[in-house]
Design a protein around this nucleic acid. Structure first.
Lengths: 268, 268
DNA sequence: GGTGGACTCTCCCACCATGGGAGAGTCCAC
DNA sequence: GTGGACTCTCCCATGGTGGGAGAGTCCACC
């Protein structure tokens, strides 16, 4: 082992980092040189610091923020593993978001930006037996499944007949805490434990049909809202989805969903 | 259709964009309000602009840079599809990088940051018959396959016997244009078309064995370089990889690779 | 013991997209 | 006419890196 100290340039080459990076890491207290000349301000690194520097480079290549790297380096092995798993989860989430994005881009590139035929029409009044839940935008998928799984047995036990398709009711905006409902159209029935009834008013609506995975619904909503706002109309909550062909009946690519956005009527 | 103009706040709510965003898009010329009051500076948008604004919001959610969105909006449908496909490819690449990162993080979290046993030892001189190629870091995988696919038939045709394993020779740094070589140890042979011979000098080396996918090799190299530099030693190109268990013999998780970095000797 | 060239220092600015906040001005319904 | 909600412009911050200016330092070679 040599005790010679390394200048920043030499050390940078060893560790596959730029001089700028090393200076930055010094400034933020992530990796300080072992000695700093008081008069010249020159930074000197020891060979032993190469391990930390290489680790930093490695973790940066995995896209960990420097602040997290600092925590990880300072932490006990157990805590460190926990931090790394947290970052792994963060990346895994980005992967799944990116996958949805790739598919949407694919579709946009194929079909062009329009791609959806939006119809302005009228809907009859419908009476739904519904089950409600609160969730974040990311959880919608599971929550909808869960609600449907609660709704159908309750209807069965209560002896309430219903008419397909299943319906979903959603707020206009995907906020952090949103109220959703899954329902089935029915004429009879007067309420049961965990079951409510909701009457969807009839009237003007904008609608379109989306064929494909639910992850690509944003494309259809984009077309719908574009059509509505272009006409100077106002959408009205709740947005309605009718699951014409659901995940139980067909693969992802063949799901068919009717999207309906009610229009506020009687605007001055 | 109403001809009323919308203030920025109203328009922002319609399009799920923030006021700040709309102002920014105006400043950069991506989406200018249809009218700007000369005295007050107030921005007024038309309902018809909602389509563009929604499209911008949609494409931003897919992580397209604003500059690319501007291009896409201004381009003809054909060119637009081309741009979108380009962005799709960019995202797809990020996905595959992220997947490699996730697996490495997983491994780091399990095995801890050390995880590799680095040995300082001596290697005998070896004479290799090699095939060379130039590539970028991203192409290494395919290029190695390709080189191996060229090497073995040539050896066979020339009647040159060789001793497993296959070897790979790489530069110390993964640069944008790197020279790699794939070779097999052999005693006989005097050259053939597209075949060269290289003698790897014997001497001090640092080595370790990596078990798992090639995408996780950076972890092993990290440990190797850390060990080398910690001792104040200098690595010397080319880095050598011996493919003890290759992709033809076992699944990804069971690949076994010996990594050898020669050490510069006789340092003053 | 010079000297030249390579290195290093600190500072400031730029990227990208967005948000926060200050301080001033504007709109509109009551 | 007034209050409250809205809008304006400016500046700053984020995170990680790179570029460049202008000044200072190191060291090997002559």
């Amino acid at each position: 082992m040599q005790d010679e100290l390394l200048t920043i340039g030499r050390f940078a080459r060893l560790c596959r980092l730029s001089v700028k990076q090393l200076r930055h890491y010094d400034d933020m207290g992530l990796l300080a040189p072992i000695r700093v000349d008081a008069s010249s301000g020159y930074r000197y690194y020891a060979s032993e610091q190469a391990r930390d520097a290489l680790t930093i480079a490695l973790l940066r290549e995995m896209d960990l923020p420097l602040s997290v790297i600092a925590q990880a380096l300072a932490a006990e092995p157990e805590r460190r593993a926990q931090i790394l798993r947290g970052e792994r989860d963060r990346l895994a989430e980005r992967i799944s978001r990116d996958q949805a994005r790739v598919e949407m881009l694919e579709r946009l590139a194929e079909g062009g930006l329009p791609g959806y035929e939006v119809t302005m029409s009228r809907e009859p009044e419908r009476r739904l037996a519904v089950v409600r839940a609160a969730c974040t935008p990311a959880e919608i998928g599971e929550k909808v499944e869960e609600c449907a799984g609660r709704l159908l047995p309750v209807l069965g036990k209560a002896g309430i007949g219903w008419e397909p398709p299943l319906w979903g009711l959603y707020p206009l905006d995907l906020e952090e805490r949103m109220e959703i409902a899954i329902g089935a159209q029915t004429l009879q029935g007067e309420g049961a434990p965990g079951l409510e009834f909701e009457v969807l008013p009839g009237g003007s609506v904008a609608e379109t049909v989306h064929i494909g995975p639910y992850a690509q619904l944003p494309l259809a909503y984009n077309a719908l809202f574009a059509a509505i706002h272009e006409r100077g109309l106002r959408p009205q909550a709740p947005v309605r989805e009718a699951y014409l062909v659901g995940p139980a009946e067909a693969p992802q690519e063949e799901l068919m969903t009717r999207l309906i956005i009610p229009i506020q009527e009687g605007m001055a």
